[in-house]
Design a protein around this nucleic acid. Sequence first.
DNA 1: GTCAATATTTTTGTATACAAGATGGATATT
DNA 2: AATATCCATCTTGTATACAAAAATATTGAC
Lengths: 218, 218
Amino acid sequence: MERKRSDRIADSLESLIFDGTFSDGERLDEVQLAKRFSVSRTPIREALQRLAMSGLVEQIPRRGVFVRQPGLVELVEMFEVMAELEAVCARLAAVRITDDALDDLRATNQRCQQAVAAQDADGYYRENERFHAILYRQSGNGFLEQECLRLHRRLQPFRRLQLRLRGRLKQSMAEHEAVVAALEAGDGDTAAATIRQHVAVQGEKFHYLMSSLKPAAE
Amino acid sequence: MERKRSDRIADSLESLIFDGTFSDGERLDEVQLAKRFSVSRTPIREALQRLAMSGLVEQIPRRGVFVRQPGLVELVEMFEVMAELEAVCARLAAVRITDDALDDLRATNQRCQQAVAAQDADGYYRENERFHAILYRQSGNGFLEQECLRLHRRLQPFRRLQLRLRGRLKQSMAEHEAVVAALEAGDGDTAAATIRQHVAVQGEKFHYLMSSLKPAAE
DNA sequence: GTCAATATTTTTGTATACAAGATGGATATT
DNA sequence: AATATCCATCTTGTATACAAAAATATTGAC
């Protein structure tokens, strides 16, 4: 599936940026990375360019690429956009969703519940991902679906941080149920409002998390 | 401002794809392009990669890159997303917009009107761009602003097609005025609904244009 | 004559070599 | 001593060379 070396390197670098191995503002030296991955500069450069397009690094011409960790405000902004995009998906899905997809959502939610009960974090994430992916798909708008997947993927590492908040999982599940109910009833506005809140609260919780942990981020 | 040769090449290729010099599905040969731009394959490859990220071409590993003109359905989808994004901007702007920005919007609209009266197509586009750019900015969400600018830019060549529809410009201006009025009144829902319709209608008109011109596009 | 297997050629992906701009420090001048 | 200038070095951007894979042509078997 992965074909070009530069693709795999891009993924690796992405992970390294996400898990904080590269701190914000750090310059990524091409020859260093080339040695690290045992390749020439060419695939490194291709990978870096991809990351630049994704917004993970900033490429200053003739100067180098610098990792660009989103600050607190940008994160909140991204969560806000994610919330709105998912709300659009929900509103569209309310009229376009198929019965099969509704069944799928319910089944996914059930598995998600079981994962919560079993304290299976990975399982929870997998099913949660699936829930949202189905919602995107059922918007009936392939372009919207892709954009949602893109942003969702970008926010994923930050989403992981906040699961530790007590009681969040249970409430999250309840919100999922409410969304399914609204979709079933064809109530687009309720579905949109519910999912918007469901996602937006993550941004807010994140805000809280950050300000409680770090002294003054940005 | 333009720094790397590959950047300028990417822009050139983008234009060539937009204006239809490269038809859909056509393979872009690296050496051919290299000769055409009198450079080596390296900057060509970098440019092509950027285009692939933007979705303008599809890159099939070890096989080449192929231009990927959006089909009719994808265009409608993109306009739908644009409409929703702008609606979000409007709703947020209704509470966040500054008085200065309101004045700016009004002035821009006025210049836009004048351009319409003078049959100054370029002027109209410039001011129309500005109107939407201000709206994005006044959402108060920098990330949303960037995403809107990205999609707006991508849709620009297709938007240009439909100005020839009789009476569209006048109605468009009226919609702009309505948006400003709603923003002034702080009525986010009305502003959102108005701008959503304003943008969505472009996708629909485009649909009409296509089906009337081409026999059966996709 | 058709199909298949192999060889040739073409094209992409990667490595290396080269060019030009940027960084940093040393030296000279005020 | 402070600052400006020039030089050395380093890093990026581009060109070329090489390797591997795919496309195409050729040849052989049936």
